[in-house]
Amino acid sequence: MRRIISVLMENAPGALSRVVGLFSQRGYNIESLTVAPTEDPTLSRLTLTTLGDEHKIEQITKHLNKLIDVVKLVDLTEGAHIERELMLVKVKAAGAQRAEVKRCVDIFRGQIVDVTSSLYIIQITGTSDKLDAFLQAVGDAAILEVVRTGVSGISRGEKVLSL
C-alpha cells in the first residue's frame, strides 16, 4: 500500500542523508521525496511516499523516529489528508496539436506557463494520480520532458504536525 509519511526534522547538515540512508540500508523503497525548511528555519519538513504492508510501514516509522534528527512524524495516509504534487511538462504543440493540448490543459485545470511557436510548458498540480492521468491524456508522442516535485501533504482539520 502506498503511504505518505511526513517528517519534521532538524534543519541540520546530514539530516537528509540519515533519512535517505536509512531507506537504502534497510531495503525500504522511496517513491518520492520532497524537503524544504518550514516557517521555523531550524526545522525542515520532509514528505516521502513509500510502498509497503502494515508491518513494513510500522518498521519504517519506528526507525525514522529513532533518528536523532527526526523530531516528529506522521503517516498522513492514516487519516484524512490533502496531497499535492506539482509537475512541469514540456510538450510539442504545433499545428492541430496546439489546440488539442490547450484543451487538455484546461480540462485538467493546468496552466501554460511558457510558449514558443512549437511547444508549450505546462504547469499542473494535483494528486499523483491526476498528474499520471494528464500525461496519459497528452500522450507519449507529444511529451518532451517531465519534471515532478514529488508529493507534499498535510492532514485535514485540526490535526497539526508541529513542535
Partner: peptide, 8 residues
Amino acid sequence: IDPASISK
C-alpha cells in the same frame, strides 16, 4: 527500550 526492536 527500543520500540523498533519490538515486533520487528
